[in-house]
Write a protein that binds this DNA or RNA. Structure first.
Lengths: 341, 341
DNA sequence: TCCTCTTTTGAAATCGATTTCAAAATTTTG
DNA sequence: CAAAATTTTGAAATCGATTTCAAAAGAGGA
């Protein structure tokens, strides 16, 4: 074993030189190949320890064409729904020695395109995507990447080529609104995200179905369409409560609920007496909100874990037909709809 | 321009072949070198577009020894404090074309070690770390990596070598507890995270200082030390309220606050009359909690953005002395301490 | 036309690992 | 003890980019 020269780079060549073997042998040791004599292995390992050598994943990835990295593209980690999803993804990924690269698009299609291209250039092994952007050229960009979409269903051709993890959006909405009706609310407004996404469309559809099933008419004035970032929720709520005299509101996600609560507070509405509220998503804080909010609970962590598992199967070589998993939701009834009938 | 053969890999060599130039020239085009004749450049770009070629960041990184990637190591993205920090990091990173790899350690030192080694193997350009693990061999693992620590101050030797972003933990605690005292609360308990971290120690110190400044004695029975994941907050609160007869509690982070609220609710305590509550961290949900919680607000997003900016300076070659930035906190007074004096 | 000077190009080395293929070393067998 | 079988090793190619250095092509002047 030679002595350590000061300024040399610590790489496989240096280890080889110092252990008086070839790079091939060092590589074999690194990969626990049985082809190495016990004695030489020991010598090599000693050098490795002495140098504190750790192989470059970069070089390795380049050679074996696999990075053990997946890209995660979401709207905004601060939207709390995604937080739990990402944690689910990361847990499964970490267990299998994968890393995740996190990207926030703010639902900006241009940002999403940029991220997609960058992740592909970085040769990620796969992608987990909640897409804001589903233009016709999507396929041109992503090509034959392995992708699992979640939360929002990609449109048209795309959806037949990739796995998808969704929740019962329509059914969740239907239950939520049905609950409001059963509680005796008469004029129910909905503040929806974008109907460009299937999520928005499905949640709206559930709302309509609930009304129809109960012999109520769907009034366009009571339907507010915006975005899931709650950009103009406040104004929408004001209109629904002041001009349209709604006595109940259905907020289709967490951020929108905040807008609703702010506006309701500004108007000094008593909840649930004057105003009933149900909302999609169920973050833990709602248990301590005033009042506690009746919620459609999504299995957020499981969405992420499931998506990552599907992706890992694809990466492992599963070439089967694309799958669509629909996870169940549940209605948690709390004080915000606790009106005596 | 030759025609596309079907199964060839799309790499720089293929582009070169099809454009009838050398790889060197293609590389120059990719990097906007002025050394290329307009005419050839056009030809090369056409081929690039036709093939949908995007250079491998992997190969590039290997050659130029720079990955444009930073690792982010935190306790748990679901702890809501970190969510905002991460978003701050990602925003700054993305603007400078950096990607972030997210790692959740759950404050498990072993996990942190594994992540550190992995990220270093992946040749990240730098690290942003809220460390659970500060063993003596830390420096052995991270060596001369570029690191910005945040939230928790690394101990001893480490701290002189790297940049640090902190907040006024002690001062924040002092203000919070002083506020409780001013409101007339007499027996104030603290439910702290781990005192292995400076954060825990500083927040405890602020608590002690506030008591001392007001001529109150620090009673060990009123000090609960656990972890910032709130593992046994419930039991701690029970003890403080039932056995120690506290009339006010100071929760040192968001998760712990949840535990406090749950326990308080279980005991049917009226807040703020029977029980005053202040807490570190200030997530948006607290504005809607019942009651709204008086909070020490940290500039979470700025912590992340600042850390990333410091890191970028280091990556750019700044070799100056290590810096320590202390960001201000602010006390938001709300109903949970609104007792008439 | 020839020579100089500038512009434009490409062959080959390099980054740090893995892998193929053949050869060397060792052990087993007859 | 020599031949065959087996174990152990290493030289060189490879992944896909960048970069160095020298040479080719083109422009301008005498």
């Amino acid at each position: 074993m030679k002595s350590i020269s000061k300024e040399e780079n610590v790489n496989i060549a240096l280890v080889a030189k110092m252990a008086q073997v070839s790079q091939t042998t060092v590589s074999r040791v690194l990969n626990n190949s049985p082809l190495v004599k016990k004695e030489t292995e020991t010598r090599v390992r000693e050098v490795i320890n002495e140098l504190g050598y750790a192989p470059s994943e970069l070089a390795r990835s380049l050679r074996i064409n696999e990075t053990k990295t997946v890209g995660v593209i979401i709207s905004n980690i601060m939207g709390s729904f995604y937080t739990a999803v990402v944690r689910g993804i990361e847990d499964v990924a970490s267990k299998r020695n994968y890393s995740i690269i996190l990207c926030n698009t703010d639902d900006d299609p241009e940002k999403e395109r940029r991220y997609l291209k960058e992740l592909i250039s970085r040769k990620v092994d796969g992608l987990i995507v909640s897409s804001a952007y589903m233009g016709a050229d999507y396929y041109n960009i992503v090509g034959d990447q392995k992708i699992v979409f979640f939360d929002r269903r990609p449109n048209g051709d795309i959806q037949r080529k990739y796995d998808i993890v969704l929740v019962q959006n329509r059914e969740g909405s239907r239950q939520a609104v049905t609950h409001l009706i059963e509680k005796g609310y008469k004029r129910i407004g909905i503040i929806n995200g974008s109907v460009d996404s299937t999520t928005g469309r499905e949640r709206l559809r559930g709302y309509e179905i609930a009304l129809e099933e109960n012999g109520m008419t769907v009034e366009p004035e009571l339907i507010k369409t915006g975005d899931f970032l709650a950009s103009n929720t406040y104004e929408d709520v004001m209109d629904l409560l002041v001009n349209q005299h709604c006595d109940a509101l259905f907020a289709t996600n967490d951020l929108i609920l905040w807008g609703v609560l702010k506006a309701a507070r500004a108007l000094n509405k008593r909840i649930p007496e004057e105003l009933g509220i149900v909302a999609f998503d169920d973050m833990e804080w709602r248990q301590f909100s005033n009042p506690r909010i009746t919620s459609v609970k999504q299995p957020t962590y499981e969405i992420g874990a499931t998506a990552m598992n599907l992706l890992l199967e694809r990466i492992a070589g599963d070439m089967g037909d694309s799958r669509e998993l629909i996870l169940p939701v549940g209605l948690e009834i709390r004080e915000s709809t606790l009106k005596g009938v």
